[in-house]
C-alpha cells in the first residue's frame, strides 16, 4: 500500500445555530494515500464539506467548533495548530478547490496576481518577472490558451470551466502533497466536467498528489476514485476500494444509492428507485443507526444501538448490524434483494 499522507481520526464538528447545536460531523476517520484518490460521496448536508474544511482549519469559529479528532499530516497533528503555523500548511501542503468557480475567485484581482499570491506567501517569490513566469507556466499547465495574455485578465473575462482551471492552477502552485477538491465539477456542464477531471488526474499523476474528491456523482467516483467513503448524517457508513463499493456494496444506504443511479449502458430498462424519506435531524442525531428511519432492512437493534464498522471484505467496512453474526437470516434476505438489482443491471451488459 502507498504511503499515508493524511490521517483523520474521529473528527467531530458542531455548529451553534439559532435552532440549537448541529452535529454536522460525528466521528469521521479516513486515510489519504500518496498518488491515490479518495472519494467522499453522500447526499447534500451529510457533512462532506465540513469534514474537509475542518482538515484545512477553515471552519468558521464561531459558529463552528471542532470538538474532537486528530488530523495527521505525514504523522504530525495539524488540528489545533496556531493560525500562522496552519497558514504554512494551507496552500503549500494541502491545496483546495471549491465547488463554484464563479464566486471563488476575487473579482477585482487579475488571475495572475491571484496565482502568484500563493507563491509569494509560501516561496517568497514577489511580484517580479519570475513570479509572472511561474503564473504563466501554471496557466499553461492547466491548459489555458494564450496564457501569457491571460495572466493579466480578471476572472469575469473567463468562462466557468476556465475559472475552475485557474482555481486548480492556484491550488497546485506550490505542488501540495494533497489536493482537496470539493465538488469541483458540480457547477460545470458535462463536457467541461470531463476535461476538468481529466486534468486533475494528470496533475495527480505528475506530482504524485493525494486527491480527496468530494462529489455527488457516482459516475465521477467510478472514473476517478481508488477508494470511497460513503457518508451519511455526519458519519462514514461504508468504506472500501471503488470496485467493492460498486459491485459488492454492503450497506443498505449504498445499495439504495446505486439503485437510484441511472446507468448509461444501452438497454437498461430498470426503473430508478429513489430512497424514501429524508436524512435525520442533526440537531438531535439518532442514538442508533442514522439510516434507521429509511432502511428497508432495519431491525430492532438498529434503533438505539450504533453499529460499529464491520469488516466485510478486503479493506472494506460497513457500519451495519446486518453484518453481525446473529442477523444472518436477515442478511441472506437482503443479499437476495441486492442480487436482484444486480441482475437488472446485468441484463444490459
Amino acid at each position: 500500500m502507498a504511503e499515508v499522507v493524511l490521517e483523520v481520526q474521529d473528527l467531530k464538528v458542531e455548529f451553534d445555530t439559532y435552532g440549537g447545536v448541529i452535529k454536522a460531523v460525528r466521528g469521521v476517520s479516513f486515510n489519504a494515500y500518496k498518488g491515490k484518490t479518495l472519494a467522499i460521496v453522500g447526499e447534500s448536508g451529510c457533512g462532506k464539506s465540513v469534514s474537509v474544511q475542518a482538515v484545512m482549519g477553515l471552519i468558521p469559529v464561531p459558529p463552528g467548533r471542532v470538538t474532537s479528532g486528530i488530523v495527521k499530516l505525514r504523522g504530525n497533528n495539524i488540528l489545533g495548530l496556531s493560525h500562522s503555523e496552519m497558514n504554512k500548511v494551507r496552500g503549500k501542503e494541502i491545496g483546495m478547490i471549491f465547488q463554484d468557480p464563479m464566486t471563488s475567485l476575487n473579482p477585482t484581482m487579475t488571475v495572475g496576481k491571484q496565482i502568484t499570491e500563493t507563491l509569494s506567501v509560501h516561496e517568497g517569490i514577489g511580484r517580479g518577472r519570475e513570479a509572472k513566469k511561474r503564473a504563466i507556466d501554471l496557466l499553461e499547465k492547466v491548459h489555458i490558451p494564450e496564457a501569457a495574455n491571460r495572466v493579466r485578465h480578471y476572472p469575469f473575462q473567463f468562462s466557468g470551466g476556465m475559472r475552475q482551471r485557474v482555481m486548480i492552477a492556484m491550488a497546485i502552485a506550490c505542488k501540495p502533497s494533497i489536493l482537496i477538491a470539493d465538488e469541483p465539477t458540480t457547477a460545470l456542464d458535462v463536457t467541461i466536467q470531463a476535461q476538468i477531471l481529466h486534468l486533475l488526474k494528470d496533475l495527480q499523476r505528475e506530482n504524485e498528489m493525494s486527491l480527496i474528491l468530494i462529489t455527488h456523482d457516482l459516475g465521477v467516483v467510478a472514473q476517478m476514485a481508488d477508494e470511497v467513503n460513503v457518508m451519511y448524517a455526519g458519519r462514514i457508513i461504508e468504506f472500501g476500494p471503488v470496485d467493492d463499493i460498486y459491485y459488492r456494496s454492503q450497506h443498505p444506504y449504498t445499495i439504495g444509492l446505486r439503485a437510484a443511479m441511472p446507468s448509461s449502458e444501452e438497454g437498461a430498462k430498470r426503473k430508478l428507485q429513489p430512497i424514501e424519506g429524508s436524512p435525520p435531524d442533526l440537531f438531535h442525531p439518532p442514538i442508533g443507526c442514522g439510516y434507521f428511519d429509511r432502511c428497508p432492512y432495519a431491525m430492532k437493534i438498529c434503533e438505539s444501538n450504533e453499529p460499529e464498522p464491520f469488516l466485510v471484505g478486503n479493506n472494506h467496512y460497513s457500519r451495519c448490524w446486518l453484518h453481525h453474526q446473529r442477523s444472518q437470516t436477515k442478511l441472506a434476505d437482503f443479499i437476495k434483494q441486492d442480487t436482484k438489482i444486480y441482475k437488472n443491471n446485468e441484463i444490459m451488459s
Binding site: L58, K92, M96, F98, S104, L105, E117, M170
Partner: peptide, 14 residues
C-alpha cells in the same frame, strides 16, 4: 464571500 475562503485556503494571513 467564497473568494475570501479561497484566500484562506491559500494560506494567506488575515
Amino acid at each position: 464571500q467564497d473568494y475570501i475562503r479561497t484566500a484562506k485556503a491559500k494560506g494567506l494571513n488575515s
